[in-house]
Design a protein around this nucleic acid. Structure first.
Lengths: 205, 205, 205, 205
DNA sequence: AATGAATGAGACTTCATTCAT
DNA sequence: CATGAATGAAGTCTCATTCAT
């Protein structure tokens, strides 16, 4: 069937615009994502943009939350739900790098969104943090996670997000997942091995 | 206080331009730091800008490395060099939040630089990472830090930077240092307590 | 109530578009009367506009002449045909203000039409002027109006229209007819030389 | 001296922009007075506009008050201050038509300003009305004008302005002053009751 | 060295009109 | 007849940079 209904056609163009914007932001950043460039890449006239989005900012604000859902789904599909909390966090971390290998632009969208699409950024960060905290609480209930208050768990979630972000930025260039030493360091640290400080309760055990 | 290179020290106008730019970026972000605004705040004509800097980007790229040195000096002055590695990292983290309370614009410069002054951002990140790694190696030599290769230490450095950045972003609003639960969570995690996974060697000890 | 030509009488959509346009122009002016807004208010699609009018300007040009006929009918219904010419002009002037109180948008249409619908404006002005002149000639024949040539009567008609327009603009805001001092000033001035009505002192000469 | 100081150059460009705008509005109306057209006629780049005016509307708002002052000066220079009030009003009316002959665009600026530069229009109307009223009051004090309250004098001022505007619109096309029959009709009508000049028949009563 | 007016490319957005459905 | 997505020209304004003074 070559002929599409008006509704289908409409959706296709909207999706093309969205995709074009995501690609451009991933490649060149929000600042280069002008309406002219987006519509050019989508193959439509500039005016067409405004039949699908009220303005440029609106599209930019939708970008990260949408891609963030993609990422979450991608990661969730790679988790062994039978594993313990620590193993799952390692799987999540590895899956994050795998996602970056598939969607090299994601990190750029993530980082720049804070500036160019603050509304969308906040929404995304909240999504991820909530997701993390709920996982942590389940782990805590299962006795797999130490003594952390709820407020502290939120802090931990932000640490993990920060680690992801900075490590992705630094080490995801290769296009083929997390390098071995990044995995090992992350695992050791997050798993609780970095310091052998005096006050560590486990040592007294 | 901005420290400019030797040649610049006596150049009052140049210093004023630099200060004006730093203030503007801290308050409103790089995007608002137009040459017109910078020169207006510095109290000189627009053309004067170009007798001191080859172009706008050049000044923007110098911003973060310069401010980063300030931050490093601030933190270093607050470290008890006699303490062990873990205690020192806690001091560094606390000092970072204290610095943010004093220089609320720093985080903005840091975050936006990645986008608007990538050259300067890379320089800054390398500075901090190098600094961290050299501290870690000293700790490792003293037996205060576990089994990490040099490459892994660099990974840890990025994790710490990421944690700082994201936690600062989320919790530094108050203007009066790190909240207690942020400190405690950071301490527990970084100190090695989050997971009680089965394979943890220390548990078998 | 809009009276459309015979062909249009049964065309509900066309009438709705016309009414919508008149309302919008009255409320916000011609500049805001975009096809999008007119069709939205009429509750039809944009494209539908062009099945009823060849283009936007065509509708705009019909607006004032149509509304002008309304106004004329409104005024005519309030004239005591038995009164002398001067009294009738006072009634007309008062009725004009009453019309403005009922149709506050009319003045806006009238004033802006000169710019945005010059063709329609010319037609309207000619209508009103012709109307005036024919009244004046009847008055002159009845000896109620002084020595004016036909060409001069046209001049007087324009003066009256100008007076109406400017006074309406300045004093019709209240929404309740002509203020007393406006009526009295108009009456004194206009009554001056044009009419030789009974109360005129010169007649005693 | 071919070389001008910067200040002089600056003023010249600003004046050229202003003149260009006035000419364009006079010829084609405010709607056609785009920044592109104004700067093109002034022979400068579009951006130059904004070094002299904060925005397009600002220039448009200055247009009528400025031209209105010109007109007032033009008229004042043609008044015989020794003549009585009625003769002076006739001179003013004739001078107004002479001004229109010299500045054919003025009427367009005047009429359209109400819509496109309402701020400037209000200022102009107030100027003229105040001017008229002060003349009337002097005439009333000198016994040359009949029984009108202050509020009524303002009404009369608006009638005169309206008459000027509509008559100018209708009869000023020729480019050579007021046609004889326009003058005579105006004179008869306006002379009617407002003024009690020496030749007034009623005085002999 | 300092000035600041001038430049012109490029950004976002609106809108009358067309045309395939 | 009705629809409404698509078009593309045109509008206002910003801004880094240059250059004559």
């Amino acid at each position: 069937m070559l002929k599409l209904s008006r509704n289908e056609r409409n959706d296709i163009v909207k999706r093309r615009l969205f995709k074009a914007a995501a690609d451009i932001v991933g490649e060149m950043g929000y600042a280069e994502a002008s309406v002219a460039r987006i519509t050019a890449r989508a193959g439509v006239a500039q005016g067409t943009f405004y039949t699908h989005f009220p303005n440029r900012q609106d599209l930019l604000d939708r970008l990260l939350p949408e891609l963030g859902q993609d990422m979450l789904a991608f990661i969730k599909a790679r988790i062994d739900t039978g594993a313990d909390a620590r193993a799952q966090e390692e799987q999540r971390f590895r899956a994050f790098f795998d996602y970056l290998a598939e969607q090299p632009g994601f990190l750029r969208v993530l980082n720049e969104a804070e500036i160019f699409a603050p509304e969308g950024h906040r929404r995304h960060i909240d999504n991820i943090a909530r997701n993390y905290v709920s996982l942590f609480r389940r782990g805590r209930a299962a006795g797999e996670i130490g003594d952390f208050t709820d407020a502290e768990l939120e802090v931990v979630a932000h640490i993990f997000m920060g680690a992801r972000g900075y490590l992705g930025q630094r080490y995801a260039g290769g296009g083929s997942g997390a390098p071995a030493h990044v995995m090992s360091a992350y695992s050791k640290l997050v798993g609780g091995l970095l310091f052998r400080a005096g006050g560590d309760k486990r040592r007294t055990t």
